[in-house]
């Protein structure tokens, strides 16, 4: 079992991160090349000020028509994304892991805070799942891919919380936690989660069109 732990926390982590980094670079570069080849009439209107204007407005909760239309979704979305990054980067156990492995260290959340916001992420995932099941206009367009993406992001948090609270065998739970995290990282460029790579550009493009060509707000 320890051999498995050593493998998932060592070589497999390198593989997962490599797939993520090189996969992301590949996806971004090939998408940019495709855009240059086929979407010249869109690229020509890309504007940094209008992109930033759009991004900024969409980063404000309830600052847009979309965010105003479904408050629960808005809260869940913001809570999810903020807490996701906080946990991934600043969770005490994660910082200790990097510290032990590479001797690099940075500020971290207290364990209690980390625990609470991990539950916030899981809560947001529950909101997403309930919406997919209960709201007709979401259920109607939900496909296997969408559930898979939700499962991918939820699993590291569920296993992480179980490992932290020492529910179930600690070694096994930790292995599952690392494995699910690696699966998530590696698959970001190749699933619905690729919005992590592309959303900034689709948002920027819409901002540029609405700002530069259409001369109105896109929020």
């Amino acid at each position: 079992m320890i051999e498995i732990y050593t493998f998932v926390s060592g070589p497999l982590a390198w593989i997962a991160w490599s797939v993520f980094v090189f996969g992301s670079i590949y996806r971004l570069v090939s998408m940019y090349n495709l855009a240059k080849a086929k979407d010249g009439s869109s690229l020509a209107y890309m504007s940094l000020p209008y992109s930033l204007r759009s991004i900024f407005h969409w980063l404000v909760p309830f600052g847009t028509l979309g965010w105003k239309s479904d408050p629960l979704m808005t809260i869940a979305t913001f809570a999810f994304h903020i807490c996701f990054f906080l946990v991934a980067i600043f969770l005490g156990a994660h910082v200790v892991f990097w510290d032990t492995a590479f001797g690099i260290s940075w500020w971290s959340l207290s364990d209690t805070t980390g625990d609470i916001i991990s539950f916030v992420v899981i809560g947001a995932c529950v909101v997403f799942a309930v919406r997919r099941l209960a709201l007709p206009h979401v259920r109607n367009v939900t496909r296997a891919k969408d559930w898979f993406a939700l499962l991918l992001v939820a699993m590291p948090f569920v296993t992480g919380v179980l490992a932290y609270h020492q529910i179930g065998p600690s070694l096994l739970m930790t292995i599952l936690h690392i494995l699910s995290g690696e699966l998530l990282i590696a698959l970001i460029p190749f699933t619905r989660l690729s919005h992590a790579l592309f959303a900034v550009f689709t948002r920027s493009y819409m901002g540029s069109e609405f700002g530069g060509v259409r001369r109105v707000r896109d929020w």
Binding site: E3, T6, Y164, L171, M173
Partner: peptide, 13 residues
């Protein structure tokens, strides 16, 4: 512990 493949290695252990 990881070198020897024995003993606790994870946080909770």
């Amino acid at each position: 512990h990881t070198d020897e493949a024995m003993g606790p290695v994870t946080c909770g252990e």
